[in-house]
Each structure stands twice: as C-alpha cells, then as structure tokens.
C-alpha cells in the first residue's frame, strides 16, 4: 500500500517542497513590507554551504549539530539579506538590480562556491544530515504515514511557520502595520510606524528563512555540497509568492505542487518508468511560466494581494 506510486509522489512532494516553502514564506514576508528581494537563490546557496560547513565542524551530539547547522545557515542567509536591505532601504538603490547582484555575488559561481572551495566542504558528505523522522511510530500507517509522519523536523517546523505567518500577517497588530508599510509607506509613517525598521527586520527574516531552505538542500536532500545545488529553487520560490497571492496557505499548496514536479523525475526513474528525464527536469520551469501567465492575465490581472508599494523605495524627505 505504501509503495503505491501516488503515495510516493505525494510524500516526496512534501519532502522536496519544504525548502521551496521556507524560501517562499521568507520572500512573502519580505515583499509584504514592500521590499522585493530577487536574491533568494543566492541566500539559499549561502545557507546551504555554511550549513554543510557547520555540520562538519561543530562538535557535539547529532541533534545539537543539526540544530547548530540550521541556525548557522539561517544566520548566514539573514546576513546576506541585511546587505540587500542596506542597499535598497538606506541607499535606495534599484531593488531589482540589487537582488540580482545578491544572486550573482552569492550564487553558484560566486561566494558560495568560493567558501565551498576554501573550506573544502565538498570533500566529504555532511557528517550529520537531517534525517526523516518516524513521528510517533506512525510512518507505516497506510497512505498518510509516509506523507505526513515520515518527514524531517524542518517540514513540521514549516507547517508551524505557515500557521504563525498567517496569524501574524492577518490577526496581529504588528502584522497589520507591516501590511500598511507594504501598501502605503507614507500612510504608515503618518500613523507613527517606523517604515525603515519594519522593512529592515522583515527583509532579514526573509533571508533567514531562505537560509533554512538552503540548509535543507545541503543536509536533507543531497547531504553533501554541490556548486549551485539549489538549481533555480530560489527563483521558483519568488514565482510562488505571486501564485500564492501573497498568502502563506496558498504558498504551501504551491510549494508542494512544485515539490512533486521536482521529485517526479527521481521517483519515476527509480521505478523504471520510461519517460525522457529531460522532459521531467523541464517540467517545474515550464509549469512556472504557464502558471505565471495564467495568474498574471485574465481574472487575476489586478494582482490580488500584491503589496501596492512593492519595489518602491520610501523617501521621507520627499513628501
């Protein structure tokens, strides 16, 4: 029963969708404050490389090392995001170009690869990978067992995060103020909200979550370092925020859809289903374009949920 193809695909959709979900939630929070960060791919790779490094060098019990790797990867992602925040919030540079700069600087041909070489992390696999758990012994339950109870700790954390984000954004005062900053910073400023502070904090939170997504790649999916290992997941995460209409729950659904497509090629190959592997590899990218076209045209043309001030610098002196 548990080896049923659909169950395997659903279970791996959750497994492979988790890092995209982290990155997309981070980007969602960042964009809600009116800051566009196109550096997700770069922040994920920096998180991934520092995560492997930590896993190889931090001493202690397995649980402690895994936790430390996640924290270190998250911190690294947050630091890179802080750079973006400084450029676009304080210096008011073009958010698109600055985000691209983050990805080029930190990405597969840049700093992440440099760190990997200097630290020689690719030489051996991560010593303490993040393993899938058997939650309450339910992993063997038919159908839902592998999907819901046989995942890594980060997957469960991501579910908690979706709930927390939803409550934070739509049911707390700070979340409402955050949305005000993203919709109309002038109004928010008039209300006495510190626009700069809100934007800095939420841009950095976005980087932290992208870093966690990166650690998931290098410690849970591959358990070793490969240059450019996120293979475009950061960009898919950015697209997901648009598909999810800037809402955490819809983003979760989207992340698992893309997780399913990323895993299809592996799952089907392992079961000797003969479909051209390149077509399966292309699927997530083709789907991203198709869904994006569908969302951006027709009934969704008004970009439901998009923060009105997304991508615009705020200049108090200019009023």
């Amino acid at each position: 029963m548990n080896s049923n193809l659909l169950v395997i695909i659903a279970a791996s959709a959750v497994f492979y969708g988790t890092p995209i979900l982290f990155a997309a939630l981070g980007e969602l929070i960042t964009e809600r404050s009116g800051v566009l960060n196109l550096g997700v791919e770069g922040m994920m790779l920096i998180g991934a490389v520092t995560g492997v490094w930590a896993s190889q060098h931090v001493p202690g019990t397995s649980w402690f090392v895994v936790l430390a790797s996640i924290v270190i990867g998250a911190t690294a992602g947050g630091l890179v995001a802080a750079l973006h925040a400084f450029l676009v919030i304080t210096l008011r540079t073009n958010q698109t170009v600055s985000g691209l700069a983050i990805t080029i600087f930190a990405g597969g041909l840049g700093l992440s690869s440099y760190f990997a070489n200097v630290w020689n992390v690719a030489a051996k696999p991560a010593s303490h990978p993040i393993r899938v758990l058997d939650v309450a012994g339910l992993a063997d339950t038919p159908i839902i067992g592998p999907i819901l109870f046989h995942q890594t700790i980060l997957t469960y954390f991501s579910w908690l995060l979706v709930v927390v984000c939803t409550i934070y954004l739509f049911h707390t005062r700070i979340g409402m103020q955050l949305r005000a900053v993203g919709e109309s910073p002038q109004t928010a400023d008039a209300m006495g909200i510190n626009v700069v502070k809100y934007r800095y904090i939420h841009t950095i939170i976005g980087g932290i979550l992208a870093g966690v997504g990166g650690v998931y790649y290098s410690l849970a999916i591959v358990p070793t370092w490969v240059d450019g290992m996120t293979k475009g997941a950061g960009w898919i995460a950015i697209a997901l925020v648009i598909f999810g209409f800037w809402r955490p729950d819809l983003t979760l659904a989207g992340a698992y859809l893309f997780g399913a497509m990323q895993s299809l090629s592996l799952t089907l190959k392992a079961r000797n289903v003969h479909i051209n592997g390149d077509i399966l590899d292309a699927l997530p990218f083709v789907m991203t374009i198709v869904v994006l076209v569908a969302v951006s045209s027709g009934w969704a043309h008004k970009r439901i949920g998009a923060p009105a001030a997304l991508g615009q610098p705020y200049e108090r002196e200019e009023r």
Binding site: L87, A101, F105, A106, G110, L111, F115, A116
Partner: peptide, 12 residues
C-alpha cells in the same frame, strides 16, 4: 568562486 565573488562585489 573568487572571480565570481569579485564580479558580484563590483556589481554591488
């Protein structure tokens, strides 16, 4: 990765 990093810094 050093050259890529330097190019990224230049872009910044």
């Amino acid at each position: 990765g050093l050259v890529g990093t330097l190019q990224g810094l230049l872009l910044f």
